[in-house]
């Protein structure tokens, strides 16, 4: 037995054919998701606003433009949910701005007074949707809310408000 083993040792090892070039085809593209933006405005603030414009503000948002994301993002989507429990119809707009202040993308929601269903809207970015460059170059999100109704009525819903929630889901290339 020892002799046989000795002979075995003397033979060079064999190996099935390997193709290490397959490494180039290895693709690591996880899909990451998380919440994006949450905005909440109670009805009393809307009523206090003088005129149609309830509020507008620019929110610096550099998660998308950071190199760790922008250099890897392939495609994805942003899903918005807008819920209005106030007594007036509202118009909510989200605009994506680049570093020079140019508007890259606009999403507008017109939502009827309560009771109304939640508006859900999925916006695709990438090969099957809007340009992914919109996302990669966005550094600011501008939110504008307009009151399309009166400023006196009060909803019968408890704690009436307009609420925008959103999530982002993107495929990124790790390798």
């Amino acid at each position: 037995m020892l002799l046989a083993l000795s002979l075995t040792m003397l033979f060079p090892g064999c190996s099935e054919k390997q193709d290490f070039d397959q490494y180039e085809q290895l693709s690591l593209e996880p899909i990451l998701e998380g919440s994006l933006l949450y905005i909440e405005a109670p009805e009393r603030i809307i009523n206090q606003a003088n005129g149609v414009m309830v509020y507008t503000f620019d929110l610096r948002f550099e998660a998308f433009s950071s190199s760790i994301f922008s250099e890897r993002a392939i495609e994805g989507s942003i899903t918005y949910f807008v819920e209005n429990t106030t007594s007036k119809p509202l118009d909510v707009t989200a605009e994506f701005l680049d570093a020079s202040g140019n508007v890259l993308d606009t999403e507008n929601f017109t939502i009827a007074a309560a009771p109304t269903a939640i508006i859900q809207r999925d916006i695709e970015y990438g090969p099957n949707g809007r340009s992914i460059d919109i996302i990669k170059n966005t550094v600011t999100i501008r939110i504008t809310a307009q009151n399309l109704g009166d400023t006196t009525s009060v909803s019968s819903f408890p704690d009436p408000k307009v609420k925008l929630t959103s999530r982002a889901q993107f495929r990124v290339r790790v390798k």
Partner: peptide, 13 residues
Amino acid sequence: TVEGAQVILPDAL
């Protein structure tokens, strides 16, 4: 724990 950027009125104004 993070739930994205949050803007809650009236504090935000």
